[in-house]
Design a protein around this nucleic acid. Structure first.
Lengths: 210, 210, 210, 210
DNA sequence: AATGAATGAGAGTTCATTCAT
DNA sequence: AATGAATGAACTCTCATTCAT
């Protein structure tokens, strides 16, 4: 048949039993390995199934299609990163801008871990982009970021905070992705995180003055 | 992406060369249309050839493989954008930071033109990423940007200027790509360009103070 | 993919050149052999291509999908039979009811030729039923039949002729198909044709009396 | 096809048998629904089992394979229709030809009920055609029909009656199937039944005269 | 008896590339 | 130089059936 326009990517069944969960995990781990080793182009259901030591049929019992696997991988990743950022940005022990610096650094490093997989996942983005779940995660990121801005820009209007939040988050994520694509050393990543944070801080301080 | 046009200098070439150039252009233009209309997934040599009114065989006479077409498209695009930025950033009539603001705006708008094609080209990136030409173009971008920084940060060290140039350019290009993926109005793009410029200016002014 | 709802079954290209025509014919003949030998269930594009001594790719150059092959086979068949019936039913040399008797006999025999293939084609009907072309052919059959009824029932109303035409044609085709499914001898087919004709004649004569 | 119901005699059976019967009926009812809703192409054991609220394994405990389900469905249907026809055709209260008219009408309407399922069942015919049971049912139909002909054609030879019975039954069933495939209104079905009966009566009356 | 996860052959279809004409 | 028919490996996904639990 025919190629589906908007692919269905919700997981096929909620793995209630331990066995299922194991299988799903085995598949996801295999997917990461295939993606890392072979790249997005050679990421096929057959290869993933073989790598997971599972039959294609079983794979399709848990994921309705190839996109669903990639989507799940990306979603898990986004959720993890989101949690990390939330934890850092809402730590009451530190000054807001210090938290921001830490967040940038942590985010950049997390992006650079398994850069190969991330790259491949990015390459596969056309397969899962524009799904409701992706939108939802973006929104929750926006909420987190705006609530952080309340602390940094207490006197700004909601609109001002919104744009500041948007620009900072967009920049962080876009730049993080870019540097993860250049294969760079930890030190270089730190430098980049430093510079990026400097830029954010300069910007936010200036906004706070007005 | 501006519509490709047969360059005037083609008239000077031998008939054979002129023919080739025409063909190559026809193919490139067709490729843009196919990419825009069908997306990266359905971008096939057969479709491009048909769209160009040319046989597959002829296509392969001018491009060794599918990737080469995409690469050429991206390269041309980068070159055009690079020229645009060079022109704006080196305009002696305006203050450096004003030039930067103009550059960001122009770049964002250029990224948002034919966003569909750009997205598709991005999706196709795995096919041409990491080629020497891509590297070369990045370097020349870096040079342009560093020379601009000499004007803005006259007292900074080369290393400082380098990192500032890097962060500004990386941010501009990554953010530009991101917003071109969200389908947004001209006004929103302007807002984003404004905010991004504010951030750059705040950062560079702070650096200039030290 | 995905299974297409209403399949596209128009032939992919009009075989202008002799080569193409040969190929198309080779494929159609191979299809008949596969259908006859393996049945509708095992009728696959791969098998047809192999039987035709052609690659799958070539097959798909001439037929957009599997259904199209079956549809073409059925269409050719219908057209042939339609021509045969038209020829017989409009022969001015014979009495109308004699023509009808001949038509029934010819039709039943034609149905019983290659009964195996016909059966398989019938089994495959769900794949091509309800296409515009199929409808068109049914309509042209109805026209032929109604014009024949003008001769047999000159004094009947259009509505009466229409229903007579419909019932006779429907019966002929339905019964023809049924007896081709029972594997029967030529003599038995003749007997059946005789009886069916008797029934038609009794009916039409009675109608003509009123 | 009437909705299947748990027969009253099930109460007399041992609990084990009752359970089996219930399960078999649940599966058969589910099969009808799947066939009607999804068509022959998508009629799968998994779907039937799910629809019946039963595991695939259980399904295979009662039916050796997919074909068996369809066969059973068709068989039941044939038996029901056969009973209906027997009842009508042997009613001593009415004239034979009136009974025939009633039988045709009842048969056509029964064929048109759940036409979707019947169509699907027909599409699935290759899976169960040519089984001994199918043959047996056809024979019993022939017997019923020949015994009816004894009343209508008392002076005809056995051979004459045989062929008359055959042609009438074949026509009725073939035409019934055909009109159930065209989606038509009750009124149209009545018209068709009327015309078909007229044809049968004209034929049989003529035969009776000789 | 009942379950339903697992299997894996097999289906339809696409497409980059070649090469005889 | 140009054509475009031909190739066939590769891909995604389905489903009848089995069998360990």
């Amino acid at each position: 048949m025919k190629t589906r326009q908007t692919p269905v990517i919700a997981a096929r069944k909620s793995p209630r039993q331990a066995r299922s969960t194991q299988l799903v995990n085995a598949i996801l781990e295999a997917a990461v390995r295939v993606l890392g080793r072979e790249g997005a182009r050679r990421f096929t259901t057959a290869r993933v199934a073989a790598e997971a030591g599972v039959s294609v049929g079983s794979l399709y019992q848990y994921f309705p299609n190839k996109e669903a696997i990639l989507f799940r991988l990306q979603t898990d990743e986004w959720r993890q990163t989101g949690d990390l950022l939330t934890r850092i940005l809402s730590d009451p022990q530190r000054q807001p801008l210090d938290r921001l610096r830490l967040a940038v650094r942590a985010f950049f490093h997390s992006e650079c871990d398994e850069a190969q997989v991330r790259l491949a996942l990015g390459d596969a983005a056309p397969l899962y982009r524009q799904t409701p779940e992706a939108r939802e995660l973006r929104k929750s990121g926006a909420r987190r970021s705006e609530s952080f801005m309340k602390e940094v820009l207490p006197r700004a209007t909601a609109a001002q905070r919104k744009i500041a939040a948007d620009i900072v988050m967009t920049t962080m994520s876009a730049v993080g992705k870019t540097i993860s694509e250049r294969t760079v050393s930890r030190a270089e990543v730190d430098n980049f995180a430093q510079a990026t944070s400097d830029m954010f801080c300069a910007y936010l301080q200036k906004l706070a003055q007005n």
